[in-house]
Design a protein around this nucleic acid. Structure first.
Lengths: 178, 178
DNA sequence: AATATATGAATGAAGG
DNA sequence: CCTTCATTCATATATT
């Protein structure tokens, strides 16, 4: 059937688990995207979400994920371009007035002139790596916890399946090693 | 499409190129986080990593990234509210025994061994470390430890009525609000 | 109904 | 720390 079922607040598959954008919401989001907006700031997300809430339930994270996904897929979507299905509804005519968001204007407003606060945390990690790499090989201490578990695979991608099957993990959360 | 994703214990199906934490690993990390640990030191990272290696392949950087991501996202989830995800599979009780670190024994500062290189960045970190030195006791807010794995997705509709913010959004499609 | 595709949601990894 | 990219999982929807 056509996607006509998802109009207004009467969406066919509108369950509670997952946000199902209405056609209007998608349209606005798409317009914003086509206008150049790719990574909205927190403030913009809030604003967009508030305005889009008039068309149905929506949260800020939905807007955040939408742009995140749309941007990521727009780039990797050049190969298998297929008809718009699912939420790709659309079809509508409306003009959009959007002011182009300047890149770099985030909520955090990182001052560009303040270079003194330029802490090199990357270096921090690099230094950490150096120390860890040389330490990770030899045993640190003795843990009774290590003897508790009998892991079957330490090498390879597939882990064991004794965890989530419904049984409790064989370990007791004794984290006193810290 | 292949849907053999997270079945059983871990997210089997993921490739080996990326760390795929097991349920136990996530549980331990979550417990540590709940205990107040936010920015583990190098020592703590390597210790945690060593212990967690019993449950599967893991590297120090995985622990480092996990805490970084978890902290950042936990903060965002304050506003973004997460949807139906994991469901707290297993989720039993978790008794955590954390030995408070000795005050003054800065985990980050390497002992007066022969550490000749001391960056300024570390000083910045030290002041932050002080925050977690005295965190073992005060109760953290309830963290959603239900995000470990998604196995029980048969959750009923939790809500459908409470929208955030007002119910009187302007109907104009003018997106000049940005 | 079964399969395929689109897309929402989550998170590991990395950059700055 | 904060922001962003890349992958992956999970599910709604379309198509056959």
């Amino acid at each position: 059937m056509d996607e006509g079922g998802r109009f207004g607040t009467t969406r066919v598959g509108a369950k509670c688990g997952r946000w199902n954008p209405t056609a209007e919401q998608v349209k606005v989001l798409t317009d914003l995207f086509r206008s150049g907006l790719r990574t909205p700031s927190t403030d913009q997300i809030q604003t967009i979400s508030s305005h889009l809430s008039s068309f149905g339930k929506i949260e800020s994270k939905n807007v955040f994920y939408w742009f995140q996904n749309h941007k990521a897929r727009e780039r990797h979507h050049k190969k298998r371009r297929r008809g718009g299905a699912g939420g790709g509804g659309g079809g509508g005519e409306d003009h959009l007035l959007l002011v182009p968001e300047k890149r770099g204007a985030r909520t955090r407003s990182l001052p560009s002139n303040d270079d003194s606060r330029k802490r090199e945390e990357e270096v921090m990690w690099e230094e950490r790596q150096r120390g860890i790499e040389t330490l990770e090989l030899f045993p640190l201490k003795s843990y009774d916890l290590a003897a508790e578990k009998r892991r079957s695979m330490r090498n390879g991608c597939e882990e064991a399946g004794f965890l989530e099957a419904g049984m409790d993990p064989p370990l007791d959360l004794n984290l006193s090693f810290l």
